[in-house]
Amino acid sequence: MADFKKIEENLKKEAKRLLEAGEVTVVLAYSKGFDEKHPMPYAAKSVADIKNIVFNEYCNHNMARYLVRYPQGTKIAVAVKAADSRAVIQLIQEEKVKRENLVLLGIPVYGMKNSKTGEVIDSKTTSGLCNPVLYDILLGAEVHGQKIVSPYEVLAEYEAMDKDARWEFWKNQLDKCIRCYACRKACPMCYCDPCFIDQSKPRWADKAPQSPGNMMYHLTRFHHLAGRCIDCGECSRACPVDIPLYLFHKKVAKECEEMFGQAAGMKLEDKPVLVDFRVEDSDKILE
């Protein structure tokens, strides 16, 4: 397990320095919630707020989610774990935020836990990474020597399923959906407002939480995140009925990586794969 106390100290220290120096106007990190298993995303805006900052193994929230909420040009420091940093990179690629307005407080971690189940969820959500891909300041020692698990390893079971069984699996899962839209709201890459599913012209699907509308919403959302999903698992974690949306996103991410040779949020200079093409793209991808 990462040294969470140390990270928390460093987080406070850096937040204090940045706010005092006026380098940023807000530090996006975590504060305590109603109990210790439920820390909350937190926006520290003054030195007085810093005492509220915490960091522990339940600080799963992808803080990149909040970046687009602040007006363009706001100087923001943001605590980034591996997946969060990928989200930041992806957002920069998509020109939603500018690199020069961000101070990335990198947090290398392993041993993050699901607050509902207590289960360690690194392999499910951090694309096999422990260290942030991009950061300005590192708040803890880089993690090395962890067992490298392919982020796509969890897919094997589902890929091996018979197509009918897989259909049954997804239908049952997606039928549970209550259309609270926590998945899209928790997703750092879902910044559309309105979302396509809220449109009345065209009405892509029924608003009622029943199979056809749920299917349309989720399948399309998987598509909208194709090549953009940075595998933070926030969609699944936010879901009150525990639909394993991250599995589907992972699968699409895997396919995109195989077809287009690029994973989301790894390089600042990349272009999102579905608004890009290469002349050497082959028809093989359609097979």
């Binding site: 998509e94 939603k96 309105p194 449109q199 272009k271 999102p272």
Partner: peptide, 10 residues
């Protein structure tokens, strides 16, 4: 309805 993703521009 535009969310400013700039896909169209790209």
């Amino acid at each position: 309805s535009c969310s400013g993703c700039q896909n169209c521009v790209r």
